[in-house]
Amino acid sequence: MPDLYVESPLAHRNSPERLSIYLREIKDRGMVDLRGIASDKKFMAAAKKVLGLDLPKTPHSSVSWGDVKALWLSIDQWLILCPRAKAAELAAALTAELGVIHSLAVDVSDMRAVLRLEGEGVREVLLKGSSLDLLSGDYKPGAVRRMHYAEIAALLHVVEDTVFDLYVFRSYADYAWEFLLATAREASKIKLFGKQAGPF
């Protein structure tokens, strides 16, 4: 098997400067799209055997075990995160284990770009492109939400309180990056709760 060749959709971009948050692309993230029927005990058991975790059934939640993480996308769909080099192997292992069970496991590592946003004002930066109430208690670490972000489809994963992963389709990576560069500028920082820097 030839060495894994991965070309980033943001390879032409320099690391950003003068932002109020820390922004970078995560290039080594492997992703496996897993679909199946959550009420099917055989499916859940087979998935657990390969992944080592119980697939989450609660909407907008995630579960992790070792270097594998399962994000809830829909009642019959999960996104499995793992190291990039492991993704193809994991998809093959799932396919083999699931056998004739009505299900699907596909390596989709090249489908989405992952943008990592870190810093104190990260929620306020994301709010500029979204209608979600990111300051509410629904977005605790571990929360997952497919969303409408800056007019494109995105997947938001709250890693830690001030660390967010934004998954966008690969062809939109450049646009999302550009949008974040503009909204996360140090000069355009907002503070929603507390004293404003105004008058404007």
Binding site: P59, H60, S131, L132, H148
Partner: peptide, 12 residues
Amino acid sequence: PVCGAEGDETDF
């Protein structure tokens, strides 16, 4: 009613 998401009509 499936996932509990609430949003304006552009999300739907």
